[in-house]
Design a protein around this nucleic acid. Sequence first.
DNA 1: CTGAAAGCGCTAACAC
DNA 2: GTGTTAGCGCTTTCAG
Lengths: 345, 345
Amino acid sequence: MSNRGLAFAKPPTIVDVARLADVSKSTVSNVIRNANCVKPEMRARVTQAITAIGYRPNILARQLVLQRTKIFGVVVGDLANPFHAEMAKQIERHASLQGYRVMFVNSQTDMAEAAGLESLLEYRVAGIIFLAHAGMPERTRQLIAGKVPTIFVACKADWGDLVSGDDLQGAKDATRHLVSLGHRRIAYFADPIVEDDADRARRAGYRAVMAEAGLLPIVFHWRRSPPGVLRGNREVTHQEVLHGPKRVTAIFSSNDLGAIELLDWADKLGIKVPEQLSIVGFDDIVLAKLARINLTTVAQPQAKLAELAIDTLARRLAGSLPAPPVRKSVELNMVIRGSTAVPER
Amino acid sequence: MSNRGLAFAKPPTIVDVARLADVSKSTVSNVIRNANCVKPEMRARVTQAITAIGYRPNILARQLVLQRTKIFGVVVGDLANPFHAEMAKQIERHASLQGYRVMFVNSQTDMAEAAGLESLLEYRVAGIIFLAHAGMPERTRQLIAGKVPTIFVACKADWGDLVSGDDLQGAKDATRHLVSLGHRRIAYFADPIVEDDADRARRAGYRAVMAEAGLLPIVFHWRRSPPGVLRGNREVTHQEVLHGPKRVTAIFSSNDLGAIELLDWADKLGIKVPEQLSIVGFDDIVLAKLARINLTTVAQPQAKLAELAIDTLARRLAGSLPAPPVRKSVELNMVIRGSTAVPER
DNA sequence: CTGAAAGCGCTAACAC
DNA sequence: GTGTTAGCGCTTTCAG
């Protein structure tokens, strides 16, 4: 309601407050920064003046002198991917809760990522959060050097802090679920959009359980262009995988998106899921819950991952974390839905 | 490769460049800002010095003196909603193309939106892009006042620029599609997560075509908590809508998410889509394309919407737009998939 | 505990 | 054309 008629008056600055409260700039500064050393009486006078003229500190000025911001740079993969979208949402939420703003840059291509990172660095972000990493690790490391703390969330990290789901355990659970249903020919399908490290860990979990059950591992790779599926470096057809004498009866996909593609695939070939083919995914994206999809999968606790990431980054900034990168992993839980069942006999 | 061993040397400033090139600060400034008035020879000397010491302008300093940034504030709805996620992705992409960075704030609740907006304003964003709007319009307007240009993308706007799909036309097309298939009892399902204005326009399109075909409009509203469906203010059961003598044979949902919920609903009641029930959605989110969903819908050209939004905002900032808010609407196209068919007889 | 003063790195008049 | 200079609004020594 103040300054009616002075619509375009410049916003009040710290000196306006100082003048009104009849103190010096620095005292006002001490008050707004919650410095320990200011007499209650002064503080009261200043706060009063602040509210009286509706003063708000100018973030831009503060940033300049501090040479740092309260902005987190977030390197995000394809937001069209529900897993990434949810991750981005949770990161924004938890950053916001801690008084941080987020600046998103896309990481679809190597080039875009590098440019985005440089930009984030120019803006002097307080920290960088990788939700996906498309660039070359070493180059990225060089770029960020010791400039700002960096945390990788559920994606590859050769350096910097890391929080992620326990992929190994999750994959073991998924594979055990299939084994315990009575499946013998269980394949692992690797979707290339899954980060290398995550894929490796999930595959390792799969292999471990297969070995322990005395079963032969069968590993396939999606290839998106030209579309196809590879076994080792040999191209295989969908027919071959799902029909024929050596067909598999169950598939563990390295992510939900791949699992859903598999579902489409089975539909087209007239193969019934779960009667003739069991499918397990990974991530538990929103899609997986749809009645028409109804996918058994390994859920990633995305809210918890985000919270842990922000918390870790904040602690790192506060200097209350050990020098070497910390790595935290959170437990993953299976969600059993309708895409898995005992094999037909 | 420079400054090995001086790892923590402070980054070079404009005066370092000036000294090296033996010119004044302002000449360097003129060069980096591409001011018209600087002799080629000088320019060369300066550019050379810049690359020699690896100078990068300090954005924070520039922001302080200009009192504005090259950051767009983006008010985004629920990123778990694929429509919003895709919109956010496209906005980031096009902003980035124009040299802008984006700061996302969430707008799930009224409170969160207000707080987010204040924060954006404190950061002196160059403009604000609404991808969703949960707050009270008038309060929001007051907050932003004449501070920064604002654009609404596919959401309510009583003021500020606007770009959106042509909801009226899209809804007409959708309804006509159903009518031309031979449906007579066609309902409109309003999902409350759709912005009021959009909903109104879509409903108007629906009503217009129904009237023109001499059919009775039947309007339902989702209610999320407690879950249910309302007709007027009377609660109706799913049974009542899809079974019984006065059952509808086709539904036009105000968005895809609602349409998919409808699909689940039909599945549970054992009603076959599209044989016994045709469903049309709105938006064409990624989900709609899945083989198991395969939804007929009205597609929103999200990339184009984003491009138009960024472009309009940039032009508004450049002052090359008329004073009153501009409103642009883009044509919507129907995508006919498997959820619609001629009614059973 | 408070005030005076020196910047942070850049832009933009305004002289020369 | 180019250099000089005065800020932008805040933090932070350093004296008192």
